[in-house]
Design a binder for these strands. Structure first.
Lengths: 257, 257
DNA sequence: CAGTGGTCTAGACCACCCT
DNA sequence: GGGTGGTCTAGACCACTGG
């Protein structure tokens, strides 16, 4: 079943603009997996026929989805569905750089452990599952410049990742979000991070080889998929002696143009 | 001299798209202060005549400037130059909320001190002025929910703020960025923040009424104006017992529509 | 080369806001 | 009612990509 065979419900009398209706229809195709990550979507002329609107309206709808990060337009090639991979992922969700530098390098990742556990009350609430449900708890170490500064704890519901095990997790060729997407059909669409300063406990001190009670940056990240469904809870413990968390807000884009 | 009297250099044979040329011309008007914060810019029909292009091209240029944050379009009213003020500023550059909540409240601000000093080497480098140049060093306390959690240290060059003194600073009716903009013609266009976890020293402990050596979130913010000229160095020391630094990345905008 | 998205035109009509 | 930006049309032509 190709998307070009589908029938779409466009209501020309609706108060909702045509471009937004089309954007929503296309968005639902992504959500329902009728358009899959990396896939080429129909060209603009085809979409014009499919939706029976003018090309400007199609361009507006596709433009919004591109701005939102779901589609990528490439002139001369076509429009593709975004996918998480090594080249695009890191600089979206990895926010650290060595002191005084701007973001550049990819971190090195080292596996620590993979366990099956039961969800605590807080974890269950975040993941919207019953307390005590089966979850996976995964620990990783991340480093820059050959030294490890970050410990990541990942909590995911077993229900959403049937068949996942330590081997599959360790042997992934790409990023973790790419694994979710390709093997489990789960596409992380947005993240929210909350940062605090705490003191390191014994476990973190040992893993990062630092003194007990050192100041540590703790980051609680919630990873969600379509319609704000929470998929992953990731807690990072970061020793910020040599690295910094970077957050830039530029209103500018075109000064260099 | 109104903008409608200006002559613009639009090159129809250039490789640069018309909409980008127009965007850059308008941007330069902002930079050169020919269009001032809060001001209504000419309507689309007037811009069409001014630049001798079709309305779609104008809309593209203005749309980009709006996305960049420099202009604000209001249907039925017109298009205005963005200005920092109490209503729009806070939720752009204030990133804290009480534990477990999302961002909502405005912080309360309390003045601590205003001093004239000489720039240290690091400060001078950031501000691109000679070491030892005259600067202002200002301390503020910020709080949420009637308790203070944040100490802000602001460093600015005296050269860029002629006539600034403690009275003017304290008696500002609006935000600090609004003061820069209205009294000194300096418009902050972008910020970059770098976060670390440290332990509190004596000064910070006393100001925030916490134990010496408590874990503290330290934020180094660089505030810049057009063409990446650094205007302000702001260092925040945050006691994150009851509040969190929030950073969301949403690719989505339209799920609620 | 054929096919893609990017730019641009010259309008019409609608929704919104203020007086 | 008069003015603003928002939506939409039905094209033409250009720039880029891959084979």
């Amino acid at each position: 079943m190709s998307i070009t065979d589908l029938k779409f419900d466009i209501d020309r009398d609706s108060k909702t603009p045509l471009w937004l209706q089309i954007r929503n229809e296309l968005f639902n195709c992504l959500y329902r997996d009728e358009l899959r990550p990396g896939q080429l979507i129909p060209n603009e002329k085809t979409l014009v026929e499919l939706f029976q609107v003018s090309i400007g309206t199609i361009r507006k709808a596709v433009g919004v989805l591109e701005k939102e990060g779901f589609l990528i337009r490439k002139q001369g090639l076509g429009t593709f569905v975004f996918q998480h991979d090594n080249s695009s992922f890191l600089f979206e969700y990895f926010h650290f750089a060595l002191n005084g530098t701007e973001k550049q390098e990819s971190p090195t990742v080292e596996f620590i452990s993979f366990e099956t556990k039961k969800a605590s009350k807080a974890e269950a609430e975040s993941l919207n599952i019953p307390t005590g449900s089966a979850i996976y708890r995964i620990y990783n170490k991340l480093g820059l410049n050959k030294k490890f500064y970050i410990v990541d704890k990942i909590i995911i519901s077993q229900d959403k990742f049937p068949g996942l095990n330590e081997e599959i997790f360790k042997n992934r060729a790409n990023t973790i979000y790419n694994l979710y997407q390709n093997k489990f059909n789960i596409f992380i669409t947005n993240c929210s991070e909350k940062l605090k300063a705490i003191t390191s406990n014994e476990k973190i001190s040992k893993l990062l080889n630092i003194e007990l009670g050192s100041p540590i940056l703790k980051i609680d990240r919630i990873g969600q998929t379509y319609h704000n469904e929470t998929i992953e809870i990731r807690t990072s413990y970061v020793h910020t002696s040599d690295i910094e968390y970077i957050h830039s807000q530029n209103s500018t884009f075109g000064e260099s143009l």
